[in-house]
Deep mutational scan, measured.
Amino acid sequence: PREAYIVTIEKGKPGQTVTWYQLRADHPKPDSLISEHPTAQEAMDAKKRYED
């Protein structure tokens, strides 16, 4: 089974940042970016789909 994890990042100019959620996995390479999402819920949904 595949495993993934969610990383929170800040995008934008200082003082005007927006939080994004990255879905990452250690396949095919360590810390590979799988997808980016504007909400934590979307990231969790993507994580479930990826791991299923």
Results as ranks from 00 to 15, higher is better:
residue 1 P to N: 14
residue 2 R to S: 08
residue 2 R to C: 12
residue 2 R to F: 12
residue 2 R to M: 11
residue 2 R to I: 12
residue 3 E to L: 15
residue 3 E to C: 13
residue 3 E to F: 15
residue 3 E to I: 15
residue 4 A to E: 01
residue 4 A to R: 02
residue 4 A to F: 14
residue 5 Y to E: 02
residue 5 Y to L: 03
residue 5 Y to M: 04
residue 5 Y to D: 01
residue 5 Y to T: 04
residue 5 Y to F: 10
residue 5 Y to I: 06
residue 7 V to L: 07
residue 8 T to S: 12
residue 8 T to P: 14
residue 8 T to R: 13
residue 8 T to F: 07
residue 8 T to A: 13
residue 9 I to S: 04
residue 9 I to R: 04
residue 9 I to C: 08
residue 9 I to W: 04
residue 12 G to F: 05
residue 13 K to R: 12
residue 13 K to N: 12
residue 13 K to L: 14
residue 14 P to T: 09
residue 15 G to R: 04
residue 15 G to M: 05
residue 16 Q to P: 09
residue 16 Q to S: 12
residue 16 Q to W: 09
residue 16 Q to D: 12
residue 16 Q to C: 14
residue 17 T to Y: 12
residue 17 T to N: 06
residue 17 T to M: 13
residue 17 T to D: 04
residue 18 V to M: 11
residue 18 V to Y: 09
residue 18 V to P: 01
residue 18 V to E: 14
residue 18 V to F: 07
residue 19 T to D: 03
residue 19 T to Y: 08
residue 19 T to V: 12
residue 20 W to T: 04
residue 20 W to K: 04
residue 20 W to V: 08
residue 20 W to N: 02
residue 20 W to R: 05
residue 20 W to A: 04
residue 20 W to G: 02
residue 21 Y to K: 00
residue 21 Y to N: 00
residue 22 Q to F: 02
residue 23 L to H: 00
residue 23 L to P: 00
residue 23 L to A: 01
residue 24 R to F: 11
residue 24 R to K: 14
residue 24 R to C: 08
residue 24 R to I: 08
residue 24 R to A: 02
residue 25 A to E: 03
residue 25 A to Y: 05
residue 25 A to M: 06
residue 25 A to Q: 05
residue 26 D to L: 12
residue 26 D to M: 13
residue 27 H to N: 10
residue 27 H to W: 15
residue 27 H to G: 06
residue 27 H to D: 09
residue 27 H to F: 15
residue 28 P to R: 08
residue 28 P to H: 11
residue 28 P to M: 07
residue 28 P to T: 06
residue 29 K to F: 14
residue 29 K to D: 10
residue 29 K to V: 14
residue 29 K to L: 14
residue 29 K to T: 13
residue 30 P to G: 09
residue 30 P to K: 13
residue 30 P to S: 07
residue 31 D to R: 11
residue 31 D to C: 15
residue 31 D to N: 15
residue 31 D to M: 12
residue 31 D to Y: 15
residue 31 D to G: 15
residue 32 S to E: 06
residue 32 S to K: 11
residue 32 S to D: 04
residue 32 S to F: 13
residue 32 S to A: 07
residue 32 S to I: 10
residue 33 L to Y: 05
residue 33 L to R: 03
residue 33 L to Q: 03
residue 34 I to K: 04
residue 35 S to V: 01
residue 35 S to K: 01
residue 35 S to Y: 01
residue 35 S to A: 02
residue 36 E to D: 04
residue 36 E to Q: 05
residue 36 E to L: 04
residue 36 E to G: 02
residue 37 H to C: 02
residue 38 P to L: 13
residue 38 P to Q: 13
residue 38 P to G: 08
residue 38 P to E: 11
residue 39 T to D: 06
residue 39 T to N: 10
residue 39 T to G: 03
residue 40 A to I: 15
residue 40 A to Q: 15
residue 40 A to S: 08
residue 40 A to C: 15
residue 41 Q to W: 11
residue 41 Q to F: 07
residue 41 Q to V: 09
residue 43 A to N: 00
residue 43 A to L: 01
residue 43 A to F: 00
residue 44 M to S: 08
residue 45 D to I: 14
residue 45 D to A: 13
residue 45 D to Y: 10
residue 45 D to K: 11
residue 46 A to I: 01
residue 46 A to Q: 03
residue 46 A to V: 02
residue 46 A to G: 03
residue 47 K to Q: 07
residue 47 K to S: 02
residue 47 K to Y: 05
residue 48 K to W: 08
residue 48 K to I: 12
residue 48 K to R: 13
residue 48 K to Q: 12
residue 48 K to A: 12
residue 49 R to W: 11
residue 49 R to E: 09
residue 49 R to K: 13
residue 49 R to F: 09
residue 49 R to D: 08
residue 49 R to Y: 10
residue 49 R to Q: 10
residue 49 R to V: 12
residue 50 Y to Q: 03
residue 52 D to V: 12
